[in-house]
Simulated assay, not measured.
Amino acid sequence: MRVLFVAHGASHVPWAVPLAWATQLAGHEVRIAARPQSVDRVKAAGLVAVPVGRRDAGDAFAGWRIPDAAERPERLPDDWPMGPLDWPEERRLSWGSQLIGLADSLADDVVAFARAWRPDLVVYDIGAVAGLVGAAAAGVPAVGFSWCQPVGLYFLDEKEVPPAYLRMFQRFGLEPRIGTDTWIDPCPPALRRPSRVPRVPVRYTPYNGPGEVPDWLLRTSGRPRVCVTGGITTTNFNDRQPQLLDELAGLDAEVLLAVKDLDTGGRPLPDNVRPTGWVPLGVLLQGCRALVHHGGAGSGMTGLAHGIPQIVVPETDDNTQWLWGDLMADSGAGINLDRSRQAEPGALAAAVTAVLEDPGHTERARAIQAEIQAMPAPAELVGYLESRAAA
């Protein structure tokens, strides 16, 4: 069986790696179609990448054909995006247009490869609906893959479908894929939101890239360890380093600072803060008591897979980082430090201290960890993929 995975962006590639490897280890051929800025992450995982889209890797929006107002959806499904995001309709329609624009910019390359390689199945990131176009071009089934955030694009009713989505198929002479297929979903029950989209659960298996264990990680100071990370694609924490350092200095904890491009402006680091350089997040978290991050689902799920409570510091109030913060607060596994609270002196230090001192946050995080461990491993999903391809 040949399986074509279609990724969305650099931070989404790690979500596909465990299932892609499970599929390959079962004896099947696997390729991962990825945008230029994501290709190196696919190759670092030991998988075969197929570059798609414009080769300007420095511009995340290179080549996007954003539909104009006349081509945008008139409405979106009521449960899209799902969860506690309080987006106005205009914001939702704009986001839907962006996903269609991204898909349209990738469709030429995805279709060309699908027609040449002839996969038996397409597994696509729900944010990369070019995978649906590729599946239509190959005449094979498609299965969505969620990254624990419910913001993939789908249309369950023909009346919801905008002209830009239809034209994306029609320019290749293809019948548009309308209605939803199944989504493979690593979201544990405690965080899952209701949906009309059929879901197949899979255990979240952290993959944070290659690396090595530094010697210092094996030595402890006797104080609780707290990991602070801005993820792999955001500069949120980079821009706020002076404030972060001031607040972290007052903690009675050993702080592991996993922030890209650390620039202290010549200021010495506090004695309790250690810059880690590049170490996979799952490695850093072993032995940590709390995780401070920007609200990325990858960082958050890696933390929960290790049973670690979280302090979420979202960059803005209207994106998926905010959604993850709400999920942590609603589940009791962490604290969402909203924008107004971030501006308060000492707010971050107070939130970290509260998580370290209140065992309830850790208990909830470990309960969600148990839910994750009870979900089917990626290897158990290979049979499902085989059945879909056969059908």
Rank of each mutant, 00 (worst) to 15 (best):
V3K: 10
A7S: 14
H8F: 09
A20L: 00
T23S: 00
E29Q: 13
R31I: 00
I32P: 00
A33L: 06
Q37H: 11
D40M: 10
R41Q: 13
R41M: 10
G46W: 07
A49P: 10
G58M: 11
D59C: 04
I66K: 09
E74A: 15
L76G: 03
L76S: 04
D78K: 09
W80M: 08
E89C: 01
E89Y: 00
E90L: 00
R92D: 00
W95I: 13
Q98C: 01
L106H: 04
A116L: 04
D120N: 07
Y124Q: 11
I126R: 13
A130D: 09
G131T: 06
A137M: 09
A138D: 05
G144I: 02
F145K: 04
Q149K: 07
Y154L: 08
K159L: 15
E160V: 05
V161S: 02
A164V: 12
F172N: 04
L174V: 02
E175Y: 00
S195V: 06
R196W: 01
P198N: 00
R199D: 02
G209T: 03
E212N: 06
W216D: 06
L217E: 02
R219T: 15
S221G: 09
G222V: 13
R223N: 05
R225L: 01
G230T: 12
T235W: 12
N236S: 15
R240V: 04
Q241L: 14
L245F: 03
L248I: 11
L262H: 07
L262W: 09
L269Q: 05
P275K: 02
Q286C: 13
G295K: 13
G295H: 13
G307V: 12
I311G: 14
V312S: 14
D317K: 12
D326C: 15
E344L: 14
E344Q: 15
G346E: 07
A347Y: 08
A350Q: 10
A350I: 10
T353H: 13
A354T: 14
V355C: 13
V355P: 12
L356T: 00
E363W: 11
I368E: 05
P378T: 01
L381Y: 03
S387C: 08
A390Q: 15
